[in-house]
């Protein structure tokens, strides 16, 4: 069955007819062409598809698009403003928080889910925020350093 939904993505309302079985991640990637949100596994294991739903970090592979009807979604494409990188993007760049970059959008969205609410989050809380996100390149240390640096920058501004 199909259904018409309206989802506000990165501040813009999108209305589309979707199959009720369609996952949010496929709606973002295939209907809206927002391919920054990645599909890394088929088992809700990797965290690459993490986006924000009404301000909370969630897995867009474990939510039907119709469940997001009337909701606000933020993806990695919504981070930079007018060509200026978001502090967390700048921090990943400066701290070598990525190598291949596949996990990076999910890492940033998961981390922001915690540090936007608690910029003073401890290292332990940062690691907890990232526990559902797998990275096969960095060994995580530089990711935690990047998130720490971004949190400090966001607390200052």
């Amino acid at each position: 069955m199909s259904q018409t939904i309206t989802v506000t993505v990165n501040g813009t309302a999108h209305t589309a007819e979707v199959e009720q079985r369609q996952l949010l991640v496929h709606f973002l990637r295939e209907t809206l062409n927002l391919t920054g949100t990645h599909v890394g596994c088929d088992t809700s294991t990797c965290g690459c598809c993490t986006v924000h739903l009404n301000g909370e970090a969630i897995l867009s592979c474990s939510l039907l698009a119709v469940q997001a009807d009337g909701c606000a979604v933020r993806t990695v494409e919504g981070l930079q403003q007018d060509g200026v990188l978001h502090p967390i993007q700048q921090a990943f760049h400066e701290n070598h928080g990525l190598q291949c970059g596949f996990c990076t959008p999910g890492m940033m969205m998961a981390a922001l889910g915690v540090i936007e609410q608690h910029p003073d989050a401890s290292d332990e809380e940062v690691r907890e925020a990232l526990e559902g996100n797998l990275c096969r390149c960095t060994g995580y240390q530089n990711i935690v350093a990047a998130v720490r640096s971004a949190a400090d920058e966001m607390a200052r501004s």
Binding site: G47, A57, I58, A110, G113, G132
Partner: peptide, 9 residues
């Protein structure tokens, strides 16, 4: 349970 993003839902 799971990870934080799973516990959010």
């Amino acid at each position: 349970v799971g990870s934080l993003v799973i516990r959010n839902r």
